[in-house]
Write a protein that binds this DNA or RNA. Structure first.
Lengths: 196, 196, 196, 196
DNA sequence: GATGAATGAGTCTTCATTCAT
DNA sequence: TATGAATGAAGACTCATTCAT
């Protein structure tokens, strides 16, 4: 074991870069070749390194996949949370939720596809958490009289389903008019949640 | 050949019944344990038979999975097509589309989850075909003046995404009030596609 | 078990024909597709029957292969032995040996290829017996002063090797001038065994 | 990288040595137990290693067998080609061909048997190439007036057949007098190809 | 007599992981 | 830090054989 202090920034930076390379490679293989093809060896070759090195950095294949998932959530949270919190009013917050979510999805379709494939192939499915905050947002809007009397659970589910479906559609339609697409989704949920 | 009564089923399974058992087992394993866990051996044990028997009847693992997919499409087509064709007018046809689709999904959530997992783990993804007919239905309604000036492609995609998401939700919420859920979805798309 | 007397010629004839069909199918598969491809199932399909039927008639796969070998030896013996015994003098007998052997090989190249493939893939190799009679023929000729002072063992081996090689050559060169080929082989061994 | 002495061989096998071990094991199993018995597992055990290691080094079973064939051709070419080219005159060249060929066969009968078994069990058989050069040698000798008016194709085939048969005979008769055997073969073909 | 169905043993191959260097 | 080598577990598939009908 080599000694390595926290302040040894040069090495740490190298290490981080190498980890980033491997995660990027994993994302590329997962999104382009599918879950079954994403072996440690294939990811290593995509990252121009060796199987041993991948496992040296992440301990196990599961470690790599967890980092692929974690980093997406981290980036997604950073991207969306402040935008949504900055919005005032439930209606505006819903608009920003849809807008920032779809823009984030469009900005990294491969990463999102990769995470989908990982989650679909894992026994643990506790995705319900992603619906909770959204439902709360809607219910708060209804309580405040800003949003109409729709079923918040159903609408939240619809929105989640549309977000999940969007990544697949975006990655297969690179020439999409994103602004128009987003505007249309917002318009429809504006109508769906209107008070009148 | 001796005549066999229906009640003799335990001893004299016909080939069709054995195939059905295996397909049911494959659906159960795929939906409950995921694609990666769905080995031929696991499916065989779930069907209370042997690996060799599964491959004897279907030739290969791929043959089993293809039959899982095929049988769902067959059943789904039979279930929905006549209902939708029977409807008059684009608005009514859209309602029937949503209703029959969601009822079919709710009637066999495991089968649908299984097919999702198979398609997600296959290289070839040409699911766009499922959006085409729906878009045509919407455009026809717009041309006839029955439906408003929304973006038919976007709405069709939203509907497809919601259908795809529904099977997961239905299978994880068995106590769901299906009628209410369906009514809400229909209400929202009624609004979204309203002329005014 | 059905009763079947020896005089029940109709059934016996059927049975013999069926066995013959299966042996012919085995020969065809072995010679055309190789030993590895010669599964019971493949042989059965080639014979337009079922795996169960093949095993019913021959007990095991080994039984089929043994019959392929046995029938060739039987036919070969019947074809060659009387011709060779009818020849007078060692030199003439050697000529007839070469001639009848090569003609027999040319008459059923597939059967001979099939037997080669079987023997090559069996642990038991006691092919030396085929050289013995030939060596005796040569030695007798030398003792009688008809043949020269060559090494009988080596010449016998050469002849056997040429016979073995001939079947492969004959089956890959159907347009061969057999008479000329045989004449040449005889001429060479006439010279090789000449007294002077 | 530490310097390693030759005597350190037990601990630090180089990849080439390990590959050689596996090829030797494959040759041993093929020649002693036959093609059907030559499973990857059996070869691995013969090489005192594991199935995984064999496939790690050669990629597939086919890769192992190809190397068994390739290495024999390489060694045979190196052994014979220079000797034959060094000979002057067709008659002398034929003698050297027979001599070097038989000596090479006698020097590694197991390897040759192994290659025979591999080629016999492969669909593609284009062994005719081995006859071509030999026939050319004979025809050149006839054109030069050194060799008599025999059928070059037939004689070439006879020689090839004898070479092929020799490996089997040599491996089953380890106490053979090789020099005498070779001398006899050469004598016979000297006579067979004599001008007079 | 004949055959469809079933099965267990054996084969090749992939792959995540461990380890020595 | 990095990696080549090695390995065992698991998977899909083939196939000879058994058995009930």
């Amino acid at each position: 074991m080599t000694m390595r202090s926290e302040s040894d920034a040069a090495l740490t930076r190298t290490q981080r870069a190498r980890r980033r390379d491997i995660i990027d490679a994993a994302i590329a293989v997962l999104s382009q070749a599918g879950f079954a093809a994403a072996s440690v060896d294939r990811i290593a070759r995509e990252a121009a390194t060796s199987k041993g090195t991948v496992l040296y950095h992440f301990g196990s294949k599961e470690g790599v996949l967890e980092e692929v998932v974690r980093s997406l959530y981290e980036e997604g949270g950073a991207y969306m949370t402040e935008r949504i919190l900055a919005a005032s009013g439930a209606r505006e917050r819903l608009r920003v939720y849809l807008d920032s979510n779809l823009r984030f999805i469009a900005s990294r379709p491969e990463h999102i596809t990769a995470v989908h494939r990982i989650l679909e192939n894992q026994p643990t499915d506790a995705e319900d958490d992603t619906v909770g905050p959204l439902r709360q947002l809607l219910v708060a809007g209804q309580d405040a009289g800003e949003l109409g009397p729709f079923d918040a659970e159903v609408v939240a589910l619809m929105i989640r389903a549309i977000m999940d479906g969007a990544s697949f559609y975006f990655s297969t339609h690179p020439d999409l008019d994103l602004d128009r697409h987003i505007a249309e989704v917002i318009r429809i949920f504006d109508r769906a949640t209107a008070v009148a």
